[in-house]
Design a protein around this nucleic acid. Sequence first.
DNA 1: GACGAAAAGTGAGTGCGCTCATATTTATTG
DNA 2: CAATAAATATGAGCGCACTCACTTTTCGTC
Lengths: 226, 226
Amino acid sequence: MQDPFTDDVPPEPHSTPAAVRPISGRRARNKTATRESIVSAALELFESKGFEATTTREIAMKAGVAEGTVFNYFETKDDIALHFFEAEVDHAIATVRADPTLKGAALEEKLFALVHSQIEYLAPYESFIGAAFVRALRPSSKLALSPRALELRARYLDFVQDLIEESLPKRRARQLGWIAPQAFWIYYLGVLLYWLHDSSPAKQNTLAFLDRSLRFGTAFLREGGI
Amino acid sequence: MQDPFTDDVPPEPHSTPAAVRPISGRRARNKTATRESIVSAALELFESKGFEATTTREIAMKAGVAEGTVFNYFETKDDIALHFFEAEVDHAIATVRADPTLKGAALEEKLFALVHSQIEYLAPYESFIGAAFVRALRPSSKLALSPRALELRARYLDFVQDLIEESLPKRRARQLGWIAPQAFWIYYLGVLLYWLHDSSPAKQNTLAFLDRSLRFGTAFLREGGI
DNA sequence: GACGAAAAGTGAGTGCGCTCATATTTATTG
DNA sequence: CAATAAATATGAGCGCACTCACTTTTCGTC
């Protein structure tokens, strides 16, 4: 059976010659339909009862599939919640890219917009995203090292790297290399933790912290002594 | 039954008049003996097979108690691993306090010594501590809000606050208030995450990162624009 | 269409962390 | 030394996430 965890087109089968394999319609449609019904069933249940209280049996029942099927699409229950986390990263990158007012803006403004967009997107899922998200940080977690997660992280780091290169002198950017995006990744995780625990109205504390620390951090990038 | 999760002396029983209740010897000795045998059994197993692969049944068997007994002493399996984390914090605070060469040192040196002592202490447990430690960060985690954890965190923050007050002008310290220690707590968690994932020889990357970021961070505390 | 192979779906089964009604041990009191 | 009470220990049992040997569906090929 083809690995259902990747939506990638399978590697060109050696037996099929020239004609592009159509990868027949019904299969693919059923597959994405099943996947979506699992995701939306999980979302409803997570939101109404929370992550821990939702069982995979319930998700399967609500989605109209067998319990085993759920695990054909997601390796673990955590993985289901992480689906929303992935969507968040892609959404935030697209948002920042698409915003014309950010074109010539300072680096800290772009980064603020990026992180702000991320936590805004996650807000509706706050009640359950932390459970899975934080678990994925464990070194022992297979999630953090799964091809999917690595690819997601790479996309994010690439984007941050792009933002830095847009705003910094070439020399300085090259000097910083990969350290800056990596540090930013850690920083982002810290902000998320802060956000998850932040009980101030409208998450003011997180936003204030974001603003101050970013202004300071970008100053560091520009002139700081790395 | 008296809560076995606290080692505190129980509140003065209303029936006993003047005489100090001896809190008879055998009980207390048995209790700490059992607790220690559970902890050391767990440690051996965690180190040899890892955290996830170790079952609570095994721990109980190796400790020579019933499985239920393990849960009379620790609320969850995570809690057992966190025992070592607690010990680490207390040990690090004591170490920094006891080091005479740090008496008049700069703030960044004290903080470096603090965090360095912490990760050095955790080194032998690296293979398993992350699993439980990171899980305790979840907002939904009961661990993060348990009286024990809160008290530990308070002790740590108090200590950091002390260090700051020793090194900064009174005005500045008062102006910073609780923000600085809290930020430092997040920073410390970030460093731990970094450390857990750091595969460089002798964790050089972590130490280098520590050094640079602390020097920068303390400069921020002194003059920065909070 | 009929056939075979591969993809997708199934659900009883497994071992886990953890609970709880009960049994055992320890301490106190007359 | 009973008798009672309280602390502690016990292990069968529970519901969970997850597995795997198997069935059903899909689809290219003749």
